[in-house]
């Protein structure tokens, strides 16, 4: 199958690759670029394990073609920590025991990252609704809610202490 050249920015790095037009973004990230943080849980846009951030929106990368992302600015879980320091959502999931098997976690983190920009101080109900595109089979969500609340507090009142990546 003939390939098409796509270029985009991923976690701040310029990426240019030739891909089959039918290549899904999730496969492009995982198999071409070895960014295996985002996972495949359903391939039908239900579970959210593949969630990444594209141009300021949470997107399920299993139902998006790589060629649709021409010129896009993409952030994945691998780009969350910066300067050797965990992002507040990562710290929140760690501190509040917001993960168990870890398979949904990259998607959860990327969704939480965007949710807290859309709504920096969400209520518990807003967190539950805001995270409802991401499924978790392990935690029962209770500690995920706490993790997002932790991150929300931390982002609004940045403390001096951080957790090293």
């Amino acid at each position: 199958m003939s390939k098409k050249l796509v270029s985009m920015t991923i976690n701040g790095n310029k990426v240019e690759e030739a891909v089959e037009p039918r290549t899904l973004l999730i496969h492009f990230l995982r198999e071409k670029l070895n960014l295996t943080g985002a996972h495949i849980g359903c391939e039908t846009s239900h579970c959210g394990a593949c969630t990444v951030d594209i141009d300021g929106e949470s997107v399920k990368s299993c139902t998006c073609l790589a060629v649709q992302c021409e010129g896009a600015d993409i952030k994945t879980v691998e780009g969350l920590a910066s300067g050797g320091v965990l992002h507040a959502v990562q710290e929140g999931f760690y501190k509040e025991h917001g993960l168990q098997c870890g398979f949904c976690t990259p998607g959860m983190l990327m969704r939480a990252y965007r949710l807290l920009q859309e709504n920096p101080d969400p209520t518990e109900e807003e967190i539950r609704v805001g995270m409802s595109g991401n499924l978790c089979r392990c935690t029962g969500y209770q500690n995920i809610v706490k993790a997002v609340q932790y991150a929300s507090r931390k982002l609004r009142e940045p403390a001096t202490d951080t957790v090293a990546a």
Binding site: R30, H39, I40, V77, L86, Q90, L99, G102, F103
Partner: peptide
């Protein structure tokens, strides 16, 4: 005790079967 597993999972560095290449 906070979990020792978490550092890799929250940074996209888990190693699941489909990650094996």
């Amino acid at each position: 005790r906070l979990r020792k597993e978490d550092a890799r999972f929250i940074q996209g560095k888990g190693n699941y079967v489909d990650d094996v290449k």
